[in-house]
């Protein structure tokens, strides 16, 4: 069964971070078992991992579940569609999640974003898919509107 990616896991870096976190979590569980220490409170996890386990109804405390989750995440990384989006500045998580939500709803549920920063964009964004590039920057918009701008300037 394919993993369902929560909106909080929006980028490839998020997936890789979740993988590291799952490994750390697994190590922590093993350590706890070795030390025979039982803790009432669960180990602290990130929002992404928490949303992921909740969305997919996974219990990380079960044996071999973390390993299985890591494998599933590897599989997901091989299957996901990776789009690259560049902005003038680093987007906030909220912005990233909104964009990922739109892509997963309108294009493909497995889409992950790779966020880049390109100051020359200034306003807007540039989307690079598997074989195309879409320039949504203001510069491109103005270039496309150049004839209209010339007409306005000439009073036509």
């Amino acid at each position: 069964m394919d993993l369902k990616m929560p909106m909080t896991i929006a980028t490839k870096q998020d997936v890789l971070r979740i993988q590291r976190e799952v490994r750390d979590y697994e190590v922590a569980v093993v350590q706890n078992n070795v030390r025979k220490t039982t803790s009432e409170s669960p180990l602290a996890v990130s929002t992404g991992l928490r949303d992921l386990v909740q969305l997919n109804q996974i219990n990380l405390n079960e044996k071999n579940v973390p390993k299985k989750l890591i494998a599933q995440l590897d599989e997901a990384l091989r299957k996901v569609i990776l789009f690259h989006m560049s902005f003038a500045t680093e987007p906030t998580d909220e912005v990233t999640q909104k964009l990922v939500a739109w892509f997963r709803k309108e294009i493909n549920p497995t889409i992950l974003l790779n966020i880049g920063v390109q100051p020359t964009i200034s306003v807007g964004a540039v989307l690079r898919t598997q074989s195309k590039q879409y320039d949504f920057s203001l510069r491109k918009h103005l270039q496309n509107s150049q004839q209209d701008l010339v007409k306005v300037l000439r009073g036509e």
Partner: peptide, 29 residues
Amino acid sequence: IDLTDQLEYIFQNLEENKKAILEDVKNGS
């Protein structure tokens, strides 16, 4: 200007190019 303020503009462009992106994903996969 904040990226949040640009979202509407970006989404508008995404909607306009949605068909092309879908085609691209379909061909790519």
